[in-house]
Amino acid sequence: MPREITYREALREGLDEELAFDDNVVIIGEEVAEYNGAYKVTEGLWKKWGDKRIIDAPISEAGFIGMGIGASMLGIRPVMELMFFSFAYVAFDQMMNNAATCRYMSGGLIHVPIVVRGPANGGTNVGATHSHTPENIFANMPGLKVVSPSDGYDAKGLIKSAIRDNDPVYFMESTVLYGEKCEVPSNDELEDGELVIPLGKAKVKREGADISLIAHGRAVVTSLEAAQILEEKHSIHAEVLDLRSIRPLDEQAILDTVRKTHRAVYIEENKPFCGVGAQISSMIMEQAFDDLDAPVLRITSADAPAFYSPPIEELQLPTAEEIAERALSIC
């Protein structure tokens, strides 16, 4: 029986292994230690690793993330938890300016190996202030890396790479996915003895020849459902490509799937304006124009702040039906 664990457990395993792997790894965030994590990602880690490695912070994101950036310059590998990625905005200067530019401005003398992780998703009726999806905003800034795993396997492999990475990595999870289970081999089942997935490698989650559904984060899960609908109801074989990391971006994997299917849709729970899909579709247009049989489509969340009302917020996010319907329109 292959081992199945949740996205949350997979992340925790990744964190735990990196705490063991490198003494300089320190986890800091609100409620990460004694409370076991607001979303229980760090459950048990304080008990195991103690006060020195797992640290509860006051509600001072600019302060503790900025502090992490400073500490990383001396070789600490801070893993900062944002209870919600929406709270990154109170630490924006630290995350956008300091983390991204110290290396450049020092002419390469400094590097900033920090990870900031936490959930970045809508769809849970917590209102506009708590539902931001800033992957496009941070990916806009050279010097920053943005990762968005869609399942537990990737979450574990990518968090380990993110922590070992020598540049700032913003790791965006999803509260909706935390409880989702998937197959994650234990280390003794693995040839390398551990699961490390390099940043910048996309993954084909489902093969198909008729259309490419390209996505990141939870939109990958929705796209897989859409691919199922397309297959069952319309005999259309969609390929689903999960970017996994947005910057660095696996351009080759995108070009490969587009050259195979000649049709592409980008799906994300981000907003449309200057969204990740805007970057991807322009890149496809520039590099694979002659391979396209139809314009690249983008499916995003509604171009509006998150609506609290549960049945209305649901309408703001991409659904499998919507993806299938729009995919059909270019098939």
């Binding site: 709270f87 917590v126 209102g127 506009a128 609506f307 609290y308 009302s309």
Partner: peptide
């Protein structure tokens, strides 16, 4: 989350507003 809510169902528990009563919210970010 109803249309008849003080913020028309848009804000929820954390985001009540009533400027006519000099009440400016209801803010979710600490």
């Amino acid at each position: 989350g109803k249309k008849t809510g003080c913020s028309k169902g848009k804000g929820g528990s954390m985001h009540y507003f009533a400027p006519d009563k000099n009440y400016w919210g209801g803010h979710g970010i600490v």
